[in-house]
Every structure is written in C-alpha cells, then in structure tokens.
Design a protein around this nucleic acid. Structure first.
Lengths: 227, 227
DNA sequence: TAGATTGTTAATCGATTAACAATC
DNA sequence: TAGATTGTTAATCGATTAACAATC
C-alpha cells in the first residue's frame, strides 16, 4: 500500500508515527480486549493479552508503546481503558458509513455480516449495476442502482467503499468511487486496482490466500521430515 | 529424545529458500501473467509485468531471482513459460482438494466462487453442524454433517481446510481438522486459532481490513496533507 | 555492434526480539 | 521492601530499492 503523506507535525497530540505493521495489529488487540472484557476480565498483563492476540509479548508491548503509556508497571493493563485507547487510535469510537458495490454471493455475505456494526462500521448502501437486483432488500438495506453512488456518498459522507463486483467491473467502480470522494477502498475483486496517490486500497483475495497455503503445503510433503 | 524439523536439503532441485514476502507475491504475479496470456501477450518485460502486478520492477526481478533464471536479458520473459514456472513453484499445476466448513452466508459465497477451480483448488465437500442445512446443494455440492469430516479428508487426501463458521465454533473445527490430518487452514472466523507447530493458518478478517483503512482515513482528515 | 533488459549486489529501511532498567 | 510487569533500548533479522554488470 502506498500512502504518500506529508505529516503536519504541529499538534503534540495527534500524528505520532505508528509503523504500518503495528497499525495492522491494533485491530487484533482491540478484538482480544473485547473478548477479555466480555469474559469479565478487568486487568491483564502483556503476556495474557499477547496470548489472546496470538503474538509474543515483546511485540505487543513495543506496539502499545507507540500509542502511549497505558499500562501500570507491576500490574498490567486495565482492559476497558486500553480497549478505548486503541479504538480511539484506530478511529472506531464512532461509526464509519460504508457502501458496498456488487451484491452477488459475496456482496450478500458482506451485507449480512453482523460484525461490521459492532466494530465501527455502518453499511449505508448496497449498489449493483444489474437492474434485476434493484429493490431487493438485503440485511434490511435496499439494493440500489450503481449510479446513485454519488448522491449516497455525499449524503452520508462516505469515505470507505467496498468492491465485491466481478474483476472486469472493479476498476470502473474504483474510478467512480474516487471521483465521488471515497478515499479508502476494500477490494474483493481479483484484480489490481490503480488509484491516485492519497487513496488507500486494501485487497482481500481468497485464491491468493489458498495459493500461499498450497506453497507451504507442497513443501511439507517433499523432502522434509518433521519429528 | 527430541528431533526437531530436519530439512533434507539433499536434492539440488527443491527446497530453495524463498522469503515469505516473496511467496505472498507469487500468486499475484501468476494472476498478472494469466491476464497477459489471455490478452495474447507472448513476451513481457519486468517493467510491464510489475505494472500489471502493482509492484515495482526491482522487487519483481528480485522475487523471480529466487525461483531461477527464467528471463532473457535484452528481451524479457516468455509469458506462458514464466506462468508455468510460477504455478509449479506454488504447487498449483494440479488441483488441491479443499473442504469448507460452515455453510452460512460466507460459506455459500465461497462455495460458489468460481475462481478457486481455475486457480488450483477443488471444493470436494461442504460441511455444516446444523442439520437444517444438510442435503442442501450449493454449487453442485451436497452440504454434509460435520462429523463426516474425517472420512472425506481420508478419501480425498484433503490437506487444506477453510473455516467459515461463527467465531465460537472455529477452534473446535480447527482441532478436528488437525486431528484428521489437515495441515493448512484458511480461517474466516473472527478469532485467533491455536494449532500445533507444523500447521499453517492464514486468516482473512473483514473488520480488521476495514479498521486498518479507518485508521489511515482518520489521519487524512486530521492535520495531515496528502500530496 | 548497439540497445535493451535481466539477474545480482550492496546499501537502506523497517520489523522483530531479548534483555533489562524503571517503577508500580 | 520484594515481586511483578511495563516501556525502552539495542541488536538482529528480513524486506525493499537503486544501481549496474552481465548478456541477450
């Protein structure tokens, strides 16, 4: 991901420079803390939280150190307090409005995914180019024509778009999203998107994940012995 | 007596040591080459392939150098030849049998995803613990009870399992998969799995991806200027 | 041969990790 | 105070990148 940013390092509060690898783990810590909180755990050590998040504790402490000093030496972390601080750092203390484009099998699954709501996102619109899908209601939201994108983005202040179309349509959808002011895109279509600098794209690709597993699997069977 | 993993580095052919970051990009190159091939391109330079894959050409050439020397100086790469070499390196010159467990919205979408077949995978079974889903047919495959896992894994020699269950069921499913001999797991459930050494887990988490985007989005609006 | 482009080197950058001083 | 655990340091490791010699 290419983010070319000039940081106005004026305010002392904001804009600490958090490494990308750390940013990618903050949501994992947030989820682990939510689980701990639901289990009634009030305090945890870096060792415990690290175990719950599936990382080692040195990495966890190093990651948290970029956010500030939210633990107590000799004691550990207050679960709810740390959870709030991480949620604030990520920016999910309020909901982000999201549009999903392409309401096929995967789009349906995404629209129905209940986890978005509790994790800081609200699906405000489902769009599809196919008229046969219009006015279908998925998870309580109408499927609307794709050309309503601009109105919806403007109306709700949408900054994040999800692309779940076939590969061939994805670049056009991305272009239209960018034109309407969306600057973060989650792409499920199996294609490389090109977008202007300043727009973030993340890609989720099922076959690629399976192929990475296949590579390692192949190596396990050939000429290696595990005892 | 404890014997750790002993790599038989005897054969000169196999077991080159490809960095993990490179392994994760090989499927991207493979897809780009497939697209080029379909467009009728016979030869491409590292610059062209890199552009199609969304990386810079230095990184591409470095990555390919771990596989061998498959280009021609002054000319470039033969698209179909390089495509075959990468497919062979990944291990997708034949199909890998795969089982999907958890046939909810997401499981349906995965089962219907046509891209698996063309990229080296064959869904041999769909399993679900819920009797109401049994004998439903999704994408031409019967949904079967979860306890048929072992028989299916043995019968088809399944090494790769996909978990698309709710979070609470995921660890149990993973345990059962490992017990039957599956050693690679693609996990869509929003939970950290613990598995023994030697088992690979990859995780796809929709909310985490969105939260990473949200983090950067938040920074774009507050006191940062993107150029 | 001259031009083009690979494959490799080496420098740089970023991420991980162990160890421990600080401090509750 | 003694024990526990954080936050930070510094060393190590792995990934990226530019530059260019090799060579078609």
């Amino acid at each position: 991901m290419e983010t070319r940013t000039l940081t106005a390092r004026t305010s002392p509060e904001s804009a600490r420079d958090i490494p990308e690898a750390t940013v990618a783990r903050l949501p994992v810590y947030l989820r682990a803390l939510t689980t701990l909180s639901e289990q009634g755990t009030g305090t945890c050590s870096s060792e415990e939280l690290a175990a719950a998040a599936g990382v080692n504790s040195a990495k966890l402490r190093k990651d948290l150190s970029y956010l500030g000093s939210y633990g107590t030496r000799g004691v550990g972390y207050d679960v709810d307090y740390l959870r709030y601080q991480i949620a604030r750092e990520i920016g999910v203390t309020q909901d982000w409005p999201v549009v999903i484009v392409g309401i096929g099998n995967l789009g349906h699954a995404l629209a129905n995914y209940s986890g978005f709501r509790s994790r800081g996102f609200r699906v405000v619109a489902l769009l599809d180019a196919d008229p046969d899908r219009h006015d279908e209601v998925v998870a309580g939201v109408d499927v609307r024509p794709f050309n309503e994108l601009e109105g919806i983005v403007t109306e709700h202040g949408v900054a994040i778009g999800v692309i779940a179309t076939p590969a061939l349509a994805a670049q056009d959808v991305a272009d239209r999203m960018v034109a309407t002011g969306i600057s973060s895109i989650l792409n499920f279509a199996p294609t490389v998107l090109s977008v202007p600098a300043g727009v973030d794209v993340r890609k989720v690709d099922l076959s690629i994940e399976l192929q990475i597993l296949a590579y390692h699997e192949q190596r396990k069977s050939h000429g290696q012995v595990t005892a």
